[in-house]
Design a protein around this nucleic acid. Structure first.
Lengths: 151, 151
DNA sequence: TTCCTTGCAAAACATTTGCATTTCT
DNA sequence: AGAAATGCAAATGTTTTGCAAGGAA
């Protein structure tokens, strides 16, 4: 890693190492705040901007990318081997991934047809996950009015 | 329109009328600021929050929806009859639409397979549009270094 | 030594909200 | 009258930046 960064013109530091390790250990869809909290548990002297800047750096060197769902928080998703889309639950706001190998081919075709050279694809399916559907089904009998508001 | 809103429990006002008309006249992917500027040209007494709230209202009644590309600005895209995805040019940041009727069926299947009940689909293809590709091709000879930075 | 990084504080931005007032129905 | 909408100012919440000090190469 240190070597990899050097080739890109960046240095390795203790903070950076901790941030990188934590990020890659945390799995997917990490927000700055979440990573900041995590990192703080091991080194409470690390500043927020350091975490933020390193998250940006991770993206810059191609190890992750930003995911934006429009809920005001930018998430960082480590780059994976396989392209994937996201299920975004409008209730619990959790992201779940799904493979989109089959679809990518078609998106490429569509791009070509439109004289657009694609560099990345994003697919987001909004809706409700099983857990939230069950939850709502249970609540409906007692709180039907709240339902109307949320919709 | 006035009638439509009443059925939903909202009133019509001069400001609202101007905002609605302007929005639908502006085409697609409008940001609050853009609409605010536009509206201001006709009535400089209209406040920013009024524009913002009405844009939210337009979404709430189902006439538009938010589009988020992760560049920090929320855009509002009027609801169209046909589902469409977006080409997002990483250079000029313009959005271009494409139909995705063919793909929606597959996304629905994928959702079902994953026990997810979809309410909406979003597809974003990042890349470069023809214009920006041509532009870069022309610049490359004189500014190859700048190229490296941007990437 | 040189350039990159860090931390803190503050700035910059976009989005929301509180509230008194005005305007629809 | 009663409910909703407006405008302004201020609060939020997040993302960014300036800068002096510290650390890696």
């Amino acid at each position: 890693m240190r070597e990899f960064l050097r080739t890109k013109g960046f240095k390795m530091t203790p903070q950076r190492e901790l941030i990188f390790k934590s990020f890659f250990a945390m799995g997917k869809h990490v927000s700055v705040d979440e990573l900041y909290d995590k990192v703080r548990q091991q080194d409470s002297s690390i500043g927020y901007s350091t975490v933020w800047r390193n998250l940006k750096l991770i993206c810059k060197v191609g190890l992750a990318e930003e995911v934006n769902l429009g809920d005001g928080v930018t998430r960082y998703d480590r780059a994976t081997e396989t392209p994937h889309g996201h299920f975004y639950c409008i209730d619990c706001r959790k992201l779940t991934e799904f493979g989109m190998d089959n679809i990518v081919g078609q998106l490429a075709i569509i791009s070509r047809e439109n004289d657009f050279v694609p560099s990345g694809f994003k697919i987001e399916i909004q809706g409700r996950c099983r857990a939230c559907r069950d939850k709502r089904a249970g609540e409906k009998t007692t709180a039907e009015s709240a339902e109307a508001q949320r919709a």
